[in-house]
């Protein structure tokens, strides 16, 4: 069987201009001064990996190591500067808080909007609405605009919607860290159930215990380089050893 995610020699470059070029005047001024594309920054450098169906993979590494960039590339939000990414199947991305939410709309309206983003029509979402409301535990706050939600509430709603079906690929980027302990437990249970149903999980977390607990495999990224790609325990230990060495 073909792997669900293939990342082939992917590099991602960002331009770290001090200010964005938003106006024509600035554009031509910078063009004249040869200041366009000035500060290049490679968030990912020649990363290759394949993930098979049903695997649970964690991405670990310090802040700015390229974890979120890699997730966004896999989710199709960003296009790689170099290399190629192939994904097979439905992706439910939980990248950052409130991915796919319109903050001006109420929670209820966002359930339908977010569902539509994932390709579910209104009838389908209405059928599952009570289940979502129930799992998110939002109660009467469901009719409040999302901009007034706490980060925990946003995460709860997002997770409840994304996991309403069995997505082929579930991407979870730190969003669970903001929920309270009880809700985190609930989410983990649901993730395990999805894994049993052959969902592929991509998970970013700074919590080594969680990583070892939920994921079998872990990938350690450091400054855009793939350092280690092995079972989660070995990878976590290697990662921890790296900064303990620095401290010593």
């Amino acid at each position: 069987m073909q792997p669900v995610i293939e990342v082939k020699n992917v590099g991602m470059r960002f331009n770290l201009a001090e200010e964005k070029t938003d106006t024509l005047k600035e554009f031509f001024l910078k063009l004249a001064k040869h200041q366009l594309h000035f500060n290049e920054f490679w968030a990912l450098k020649d990363v290759s990996l394949t993930i098979e169906k049903g695997e649970s993979v964690a991405l670990i590494g310090k802040n700015g190591s390229g974890k979120s960039t890699l997730l966004k590339l896999i989710a199709g939000v960003l296009a790689p500067t170099k290399g190629e990414i192939i994904t097979r199947g439905e992706i439910a991305p939980l990248i950052e808080l409130g991915a796919g939410f319109d903050y001006d709309l109420t929670g209820r309206e966002n359930v339908f909007l977010n569902g539509a983003v994932m390709g579910f029509d209104r009838a389908f979402m209405e059928k599952h609405f009570d289940e979502i409301l129930d799992f998110s535990e939002l109660g009467r706050f469901i009719d409040v605009p999302v901009k007034n939600y706490s980060s925990g509430m946003t995460a709860r709603l997002g997770f409840s919607i994304a996991t309403i079906t069995n997505p082929d690929i579930l991407i979870v980027d730190e969003v669970l860290a903001v929920g309270d302990e009880r809700f985190q437990k609930k989410c983990e249970e649901r993730i395990r159930r999805l894994l049993d149903n052959n969902t592929t999980l991509l998970f970013v977390s700074h919590n080594a215990e969680k990583v070892k607990d939920i994921c079998k495999r872990a990938i350690w990224l450091d400054e855009g380089n793939l350092m280690v790609d092995t079972d989660s325990k070995t990878a976590c230990d290697a990662y921890h050893a790296s900064f303990e060495n620095k401290n010593a």
């Binding site: 989710a75 991305p93 796919g100 983003v117």
Partner: peptide, 9 residues
């Protein structure tokens, strides 16, 4: 922008 930045559409 908020939608486009986080999910593929």
């Amino acid at each position: 922008a908020t939608l486009l930045k986080k999910v593929y559409i």
